[in-house]
């Protein structure tokens, strides 16, 4: 648990001891000591398994109403573990199906933003100079804009379709990655070991694969872990406003929106999807924090 304490010691200690161990082994040891991060990892694994397998195990379908049970509270007798909504649909299945969409959006949109961010940042960093300057000014410019609103505008203009959600969120969320990758590329470009590799006749591809990618991997992992919850949040925000996924699909945000409207009569229809959503975001954030501490002990806020 004493992550930061440990970090402080490590810094104060003779650095030779630390450099002896490999970065990854060391990071792994730090992570294993961070019980909150490990618990979060467990929560996420269980969550993914549940979301995939759960709906298959259930007797109910997320669209077909149970004509005998409208807005019934959770109970074992009716077989509706999380109760039903105002249309008589089983909330357990709906929550898990919604979770599939939310997690899927989170992962796919993150990958989109990763792709854009890495290409953009690598190009800027690789060329450097004026190109870099211009490209980064553009990024700074977009940074200053209310990007959530642009997502909404994109949704409004191009219609509400799930693929668009991936792209729209990914398209506005790549800025951080671009900055990170650019910085890393710039600093790596002129490192002695890259020069040395080049002098030894390594091709650009080999250099990128052997030197640049491994160095970037750590930041990318942390970035992905912290971006997925952001994206899930944006999607559920859109769905909550009625601008995200549309019926018959659903997501945690859409379910929370429905639940909020039945707050007085059927609070469970809010609490279950909200709980799943919050637990997932919480676990991702904690894991991301833990990974960051583990991989880069100096940069811990």
């Amino acid at each position: 648990m004493n992550e930061s304490e440990r970090d402080a010691f490590d810094q104060a200690l003779d650095t030779r001891v630390i450099q002896g161990r490999s970065l990854w082994v060391d990071a792994w040891h730090r992570l294993l000591k961070n019980r909150a991060a490990l618990a979060s990892l467990l929560v996420l694994v269980v969550m993914v398994a549940l979301v995939i397998i759960g709906p298959m195990m259930s007797d109910w379908d997320h669209e077909i109403p149970d004509w005998d049970n409208y807005s019934t509270p959770p109970s074992l007798e009716t077989g509706h573990l999380f109760g039903t909504d105002a249309l008589g649909r089983d909330l357990f299945v709906r929550t898990l199906i919604g979770g599939r969409i939310s997690l899927l959006v989170g992962i796919v949109a993150t990958l989109v933003s990763l792709l854009i961010g890495i290409s953009y940042g690598a190009i800027a960093g690789y060329f450097g100079g004026r190109v870099d300057n211009l490209m980064m000014r553009f990024v700074d410019g977009i940074y200053a804009m209310p990007f959530m609103f642009f997502v909404i505008v994109l949704m409004v203009i191009f219609g509400r379709n799930i693929f668009l959600i991936f792209v729209a969120i990914g398209a506005v969320n790549w800025l951080d990655m671009a900055r990170i990758v650019r910085g890393q590329t710039l600093s790596l470009k002129n490192k002695p070991f890259v020069e040395a590799a080049r002098a030894c006749g390594a091709t650009e591809m080999q250099i990128i694969r052997r030197h640049i990618v491994p160095n970037l991997l750590g930041v990318v992992i942390v970035y992905v872990t912290l971006t997925i919850p952001q994206v899930i949040l944006i999607e559920s925000f859109l769905s909550f406003l009625g601008l995200g996924v549309q019926e018959p699909l659903t997501s945690w945000g859409a379910l929370v929106n429905e639940g909020a409207q039945e707050l007085e009569t059927a609070p469970w229809s809010l609490l279950f999807p909200a709980g799943f959503l919050a637990a997932t975001l919480f676990a991702f954030n904690f894991l991301g924090d833990g990974l960051r501490d583990a991989l880069d002990p100096k940069d811990r806020v």
Partner: peptide, 13 residues
């Protein structure tokens, strides 16, 4: 961390 993780459209209801 809980405060950061619970979206405001959940907190408000």
């Amino acid at each position: 961390m809980v405060g950061i993780s619970i979206p405001n459209f959940v907190v408000a209801p």
